[in-house]
Amino acid sequence: MGLVALVAAALVGFWELYHWVWVSTGWTWPFVVNDTSMPHVWTIYNAFGEPAQVNQPALINVLLHKAAFTAKEAAAGFGLGAVIGFVLAVVLAHVRLLQRGFLPYIVGSQTVPILAIAPMVVLWVNPRLPGSLQGWGAVAVIATYLTFFPVTINTLRGLQSADPRALELMRTYAASRWAVLWKLRVPASLPYLFSALRLAATASVVGAIIGELPTGLQDGLGGAIINFNQYYSIEPQELWATNVIAAALGIAFFVIVVLAEKAFVRRAPEETA
């Protein structure tokens, strides 16, 4: 915890130092530094307390609401993506032919720029969702798309990582494939699965934010980013404040997964030099 505070202080210090040096010397590489491009840390801090627009609550409240909205999409995407990824990995681990056939496309699926197909996904998914799920549901689908991939790849590797001697032992117990899966492969794959879930946590937040951009949803952080981007030259600190909240959301999801891992996984400490 102390280390986090130290790093935070160092970042703030570095930021202000960079600001001061670049302003004093007038360097323009890599980019021009002034109060607009790099607002002071305290400007950003103060912006949280003020309302962004007239007759609105303080920025921090607005942003937290939007963060909660985006979090809802990300969490749904995370859950769905994790389940789909896990099931897909189990199927691929057991049917080599399917694995060879589908794996290249699963990898390839991630090269499709999600932002580009997001509008089509939204147009197609929204009408098919019940009323209460519309809007954010489509974004959750996009978040799922980004989440399932790391889960599939890592879980597959984990399922295949069982010690061959342990597999042989299972043969001596005449174990069914189901038993081998649940008693050996899945527990052995947990470290890999959690490594995947850490990536998935981030991916789901990114997916949720990206998904909100073309859909024009005002309720989430993506909408806030577009909004504040439009008057960045006047009030840069508001976009920065939004980004701070977005960063905090991503980190929060990540930390939850890390804590869950600590609770669930017990394994031998690693030996490194």
Binding site: L3, V4, V7, P30, F31, V32, T36, S37, R198, A201, T202, V205, V206, I209, I210, L221, I225, I226, N229, Y232, S233, P236, L239, W240, T242, N243, A246, A247, L249, G250, I251, F253, F254, V255
Partner: peptide, 20 residues
């Protein structure tokens, strides 16, 4: 710390990079 930093959605900074 670095691993946690990886959890920050960089994409949110796209407009700022545009401004820079």
């Amino acid at each position: 710390i670095f691993i946690a930093a990886n959890a920050v959605p960089i994409i949110a900074f796209a407009p700022i990079f545009g401004a820079w």
